[in-house]
Nucleic acid binder design. Sequence first.
DNA 1: TGATGCATGTAATCCGTTACATGATTCA
DNA 2: TGAATCATGTAACGGATTACATGCATCA
Lengths: 178, 178
Amino acid sequence: MNVRTLCLGILSLQEASGYEIKKDVEDGLFSHFLDASYGSIYPALTQLAAEGLVTVRAEEQTGKPDKKVYAITPAGKNALAKAISVTPAKDKYKSEFLFQMLLQDFLSPVVMLVAIQKQLDDLNEDLGHIANCGPVSGGGSGAQFVAEYGHAVLTAGVKCLEYKKAELLQQLAVQAAE
Amino acid sequence: MNVRTLCLGILSLQEASGYEIKKDVEDGLFSHFLDASYGSIYPALTQLAAEGLVTVRAEEQTGKPDKKVYAITPAGKNALAKAISVTPAKDKYKSEFLFQMLLQDFLSPVVMLVAIQKQLDDLNEDLGHIANCGPVSGGGSGAQFVAEYGHAVLTAGVKCLEYKKAELLQQLAVQAAE
DNA sequence: TGATGCATGTAATCCGTTACATGATTCA
DNA sequence: TGAATCATGTAACGGATTACATGCATCA
């Protein structure tokens, strides 16, 4: 899936500017399974508008720069429906954290502890993003499904890491006592 | 993290050919959080050998093509230790499946069911990869940690999806009865 | 006889990130 | 006064994937 489809998908839930789409994938409900940078979002939006799949409207704001609000068109909805009806690619998960843990023989216990804590913070941050969006938001039942799935998976990770962390802490304490 | 470091990491656990490294990230214990293609592995290995971070040995095989077995050198271990001692980048997770679920209003219940089943199959496949490696394998305690974490997260996903699937199936049955 | 597994490699292409460029406003 | 937020955009660069090329052995 490319950034074009991503934008179309978000715009099908609500109107938004490029800046707001970036926020959605950075801090919003979608942050834990989507990603895109300004460098890909803005060109995609321009292209989408040129093809008539979205409309643009300049919105003046007081105290803030003007923004371009994009909205999906019927043609855009068709294109979106087509794009997401194909069997999706398998989820991609890349974790440098797990790579580090795999190679823990090369790491000092302190470095390990720092890495685990960082991972814990990252997971909790994502959990926070999901919680912030509240039970109802943009995508209705779809958003709820995604929130529940994310919550389940993220929570499982946290639980596992809390256990590991406690284990490590105890080991460190024993070592210090010797 | 780049493919160079990935190869160095796997070679620190055991000797391997490029083909075997690819299998590790495709079907092995690492498959659910690492990824690399031949097009990136082979050049990386060649480069690593040229820099003296790994050694190459041609191994003749009966009934199979010869293979080049790579092994990490002390210099390679140093380079690896250095590379993984920096704070790792945040995990990247991209899910077209969740994107589809988010946009479920554009999907027929049947397409949704197919998508959920496919996701379930994918998760169970990864779970199988972890189980196949058994309690002990290459990386010792590191491998065990990674296996436990993967198992916890993947299982949570399966549980959540089984529930959703049952819910959907029931809805479909009710609709059919009307 | 055709598909699949084992095995190595190269080159074009693509998609996206990073960095750069600009500028107003608000809050500390 | 400096940092952060809001806001849009471009261009170079990079890293990896995809597709291609080759070839033997085994299994159905």
